[in-house]
C-alpha cells in the first residue's frame, strides 16, 4: 500500500464577496446557509481537508451549492482560494519546482500552468469549459502537447491519434470541431485532452451529468478501463451516488461548503453517520 498521499489539501477556503472575518463561523450546515448573515459573502467552501493516495479514486458528493465543484476549480487553479494549502508529491512536480514541498497555491501563474499541463488532467461537466468548440478536436488535444513544448507535427499527430483510439473516438473526425459532436463524444475529447501528458492526477467534475443512461455507462466504463491502464489517482465530483458507488474507494460528503462526512464509499452508502448523508442516501431511487 502507498503510505504517502500523492495529493494533500489543508484548510481550503473560498469566499465570494468581501469576507468580514466572521463568515466561516456564521455559515455551514449548522446555520443551514452558506451566506454570511453579517456581510452577505458566499462561503463556497471552508476548512476542507483531505488527501488522495496513489491509484486511489476519491469521490466528492453533495447537492448543487455544496461547494464540491468549487474544490475542483480551486485545485485546477481556475479560481484562487482565500486560504489553504495544496501539495502534490510526484516526480513531475520535482521536475517543475525542484525539491522541497511547496504550497501550490503560492506558485506563479507560469508554474501553475505547467502543473496544470503536466500533473493535472481535468474534465469539466460542460465541454465548453474544457474545449475550444470551434477548433478541431485534434487541435484541442494537441494544445496540451504544444503547451508541453512538443514541436514535432508528426509526433503530435501520432499522439493525438493514439488518444483518439484510447478514448474510443472516431479517428476520421479528428479534424472536425467538437461543436459538431454529441455530448458523449465531447466528453471523450475532454478526457483525451486531459490524458494527453499522462498526468498522475485526474479531476472529473460531473462528467456524466446530462448524458443519456447508455452514454453515461460507456463513459464510466472508459474511466474504469483508463484507471486500470494508467493507474492515476482520480478525484471525481458527482451528485450521483451510483457513479460514486461504482467508481470510488473513498468518499467525502459536502454540504453548504463543508465536509460533513468522509469514509470508505460502501460505509458512507450503507452506514452513513451524518443526518445529511443519511438523507442523501435515502433519497436515491
Amino acid at each position: 500500500m502507498e503510505l504517502f498521499p500523492i495529493l494533500e489539501v489543508r484548510n481550503l477556503t473560498k469566499i465570494y464577496g468581501k469576507p468580514c472575518g466572521e463568515c466561516i463561523s456564521h455559515t455551514g450546515p449548522i446555520y443551514e446557509t452558506n451566506i454570511c448573515s453579517r456581510c452577505n459573502s458566499l462561503v463556497a467552501c471552508a476548512d476542507i481537508n483531505f488527501e488522495l493516495y496513489p491509484g486511489e479514486i476519491l469521490g466528492i458528493v453533495g447537492e448543487s451549492g455544496s461547494g464540491k465543484s468549487t474544490v475542483i476549480k480551486l485545485l485546477a487553479f481556475d479560481v484562487e482560494p482565500l486560504q489553504g494549502e495544496y501539495y502534490i508529491k510526484h516526480e513531475k512536480i520535482i521536475n517543475i519546482l525542484g525539491n522541497g514541498q511547496k504550497n501550490l497555491f503560492n506558485l506563479t501563474p507560469f508554474e501553475k500552468r505547467q502543473i496544470r499541463n503536466q500533473v493535472i488532467g481535468i474534465v469539466y461537466q460542460y465541454p465548453y469549459l474544457g474545449l475550444k468548440m470551434n477548433i478541431s478536436a485534434g487541435g484541442n488535444i494537441a494544445e496540451n502537447l504544444l503547451v508541453a513544448g512538443l514541436r514535432n507535427l508528426k509526433r503530435i499527430r501520432e499522439k493525438v491519434l493514439e488518444l483518439f483510439e484510447k478514448t474510443e473516438l472516431p479517428i476520421q473526425r479528428i479534424d472536425e470541431p467538437p461543436i459538431k459532436f454529441s455530448g458523449g463524444m465531447q466528453q471523450r475529447v475532454q478526457i483525451a485532452k486531459a490524458l494527453s501528458n499522462n498526468p498522475p492526477v485526474l479531476f472529473l467534475d460531473e462528467v456524466t451529468t446530462g448524458l443519456d443512461v447508455s452514454v453515461k455507462a460507456r463513459i464510466l466504463d472508459l474511466i474504469k478501463n483508463l484507471h486500470h491502464d494508467y493507474n492515476f489517482s482520480i478525484i471525481i465530483v458527482s451528485h450521483d451516488l451510483s457513479i460514486i458507488r461504482v467508481l470510488t474507494h473513498r468518499t467525502i460528503v459536502m454540504k453548504l461548503g463543508r465536509v460533513v462526512e468522509a469514509g470508505l464509499t460502501d460505509q458512507i452508502l450503507e452506514d452513513p453517520q451524518h443526518p445529511y448523508t443519511q438523507l442523501l442516501v435515502n433519497s436515491q431511487l
Binding site: I135, S136, G138, A142, L146
Partner: peptide
Amino acid sequence: LYLYEDIV
C-alpha cells in the same frame, strides 16, 4: 495551436 490548425 493556430499554426497547427492552419497546417491541418
